[in-house]
């Protein structure tokens, strides 16, 4: 298990610590952020990018981020700003009972388009499910996209990436 974590994959007990409070999460429109940043490194752009102060000020720049979920509005600005691409938003209120909306960082080609069916991947790049892209934003206009994907609700703690499969790829 440690070997997996040591290669950059968040594992069981650590996953528990990044899950937003369930009651709040279930009802929070636009979703809440999940930050998978378990290592103390000198970095604070998530805090700097947060418009509501949900990411609490850093006493030491090496601190790992602490979120006040009551303030988080699921805007995804930190998703696009984090240099480690470690922030993800999951909106459990979106769509049908078994659906959720995820806002995932994306810096690869090909770029997805609204309406695209994509493959949802977990923390080691294995296929989890299909997903449907409904929106793509670029909050900082710096080429880091935030892809809004509809995913199965029970897989929000597994899905961390998408694979865009274009049939008419060049």
């Amino acid at each position: 298990m440690d070997k997996l974590f040591n290669s950059g994959v968040l594992t069981a007990e650590r996953i528990e610590t990044v899950i937003p409070p369930r009651d709040l999460w279930k009802t929070k429109k636009n979703g809440l952020v999940i930050i998978e940043c378990p290592q103390r490194i000198p970095c604070n752009p998530c805090y700097e990018s947060c418009p509501t102060g949900a990411i609490l000020p850093f006493e030491d720049i090496n601190d790992t981020p602490v979120v006040d979920y009551t303030k988080c509005i699921g805007c995804g600005r930190c998703v696009a700003k984090c240099p480690g691409l470690a922030c993800f938003v999951a909106d459990l209120t979106w769509g049908a009972e078994n659906e959720a909306l995820m806002k995932l960082p994306y810096e690869m080609l090909p770029k997805p388009e609204p309406g695209d069916e994509v493959v949802c991947l977990d923390r080691i790049g294995s296929e989890v499910s299909q997903g449907k892209v409904i929106n793509i934003t670029e909050p900082w206009e710096d080429s880091t996209m935030v892809v809004h994907v509809v995913v199965p609700k029970d897989r929000v703690m597994d899905i961390r990436n998408i694979k865009v499969v274009k049939n008419n790829a060049r």
């Binding site: 040591n6 290669s7 950059g8 998978e36 940043c37 691409l85 080691i124």
Partner: peptide, 23 residues
């Protein structure tokens, strides 16, 4: 080494793209 030497988040980025890291 038995552990990545760089920032953990950099490794996570590349792992979720399906790249194996042979520690």
């Amino acid at each position: 080494m038995p552990k990545i030497g760089g920032y953990w988040v950099h490794a996570a980025k590349i792992r979720r793209l399906g790249v194996p890291i042979y520690l």
